[in-house]
Nucleic acid binder design. Structure first.
Length: 292
DNA sequence: TCCAGCGTTGCGTCTTCCGT
DNA sequence: ACGGAAGACGCAACGCTGGA
């Protein structure tokens, strides 16, 4: 049984990282010499900002996501690829796609092979204390994200904007990107101010979904959003639900289109497309004409 | 070796909202 | 009316990486 994001995975992150990083690179050190992942909400002492954990957590979450998606697509002859490069659709080497589902397993990708793009925006969610003298159980969870000062993952407006910006950049890069769904994967809820925005991004065809793959981000059954009205944001329950969601994503091809045409031009296009027999054919002709 | 660009979280300031 | 809380946003700070 494979699990979505939870405390054990965060504990794994610290255990793994300890193989090559020092405690000071992973934890803040408080005035009374405690090692903490985040500053507690009411911490009164002098604070600093940890930088050394950034790339570690980035790499860990991207690899973890790649492995998770690989589990789902491998029996379909597909591959989850981490750090995919595709210059044609604005994924250059210095800003690759975090994870893609592709027909091939190589870093260098053709747009035609990419079936979905995942932008991973995850961080350490809970607060943790590292106890230097406890070799059996060195990492203790000391609270959820409401108890510390950090704003993890998609709760940060900056992270949301970055994800949205990158998605738009892909959308406007090339017509070949039009059929590729873009999913933002997080491990936190999103703030209220983005509820309607994610729904609009979904209807506009820019970002298909913001998924949180952390089923229980708050302790003691804390209230947190399950989904927005149009499911632009959705919190997944378990691995099987992720599997079903990805399979349904892959089962139907979609098209992103946008234009600034007059009503008359649009009417003409609709009229011409309507001459076709099936809905699929009508759609195909409509898209062909609108991009001319 | 240097530098640009990406990724990460924290902080200051401004605005909005809400309870008193 | 006022003060505090919370959010948005721009920025600072710093590590890592890859290319010139």
């Amino acid at each position: 049984m494979t699990h979505l994001w939870n405390k054990d995975i965060e504990r794994n992150f610290f255990t793994e990282s300890f193989k090559f990083a020092t405690p000071e690179q992973l934890f803040y050190v408080t005035d009374d010499n405690r090692y903490l992942a985040y500053w507690p909400k009411k911490y009164p002492g002098k604070k600093n900002t940890l930088q050394s954990r950034n790339s570690l957590i980035g790499r860990f979450t991207e690899k973890w996501t790649k492995d998770l998606i690989q589990e789902i697509v491998q029996d379909k002859g597909l591959f989850a690829v981490q750090g995919a490069v595709c210059n044609e659709i604005a994924l250059p080497r210095n800003s690759p796609a975090d994870v893609v589902i592709s027909r091939n397993r190589y870093i260098e990708q053709n747009p035609e092979d990419i079936l979905a793009i995942f932008e991973v925006k995850m961080s350490v969610v809970w607060n943790w204390e590292f106890k230097i003298n406890n070799s059996v159980e060195p990492f203790t969870c000391i609270g959820d994200y409401k108890t510390h000062k950090g704003t993890p993952g998609l709760l940060r407006s900056d992270s949301m904007l970055k994800a949205i910006g990158k998605s738009i950049n892909i959308r406007v890069s090339n017509l070949k990107a039009a059929t590729i769904p873009i999913i933002v994967l997080g491990n936190t809820p999103i703030t209220k101010s983005y509820y309607s925005k994610v729904d609009h991004l979904k209807s506009a065809g820019i970002v298909q979904n913001f998924w949180s793959i952390n089923p229980e981000p708050l302790d003691n059954n804390g209230e947190n959003i399950k989904q927005t009205e149009k499911k632009g944001f959705y919190r997944l329950e378990d691995f099987n639900e992720l599997r079903v969601s990805i399979e349904s994503l892959l089962s139907e091809t979609r098209n992103y289109f946008s234009s600034m045409k007059s009503n008359k031009e649009l009417g003409k296009i609709i009229d011409l497309a309507n001459g076709e027999k099936t809905y699929e054919k009508k759609g195909e002709v409509f898209l062909k004409l609108i991009n001319e």
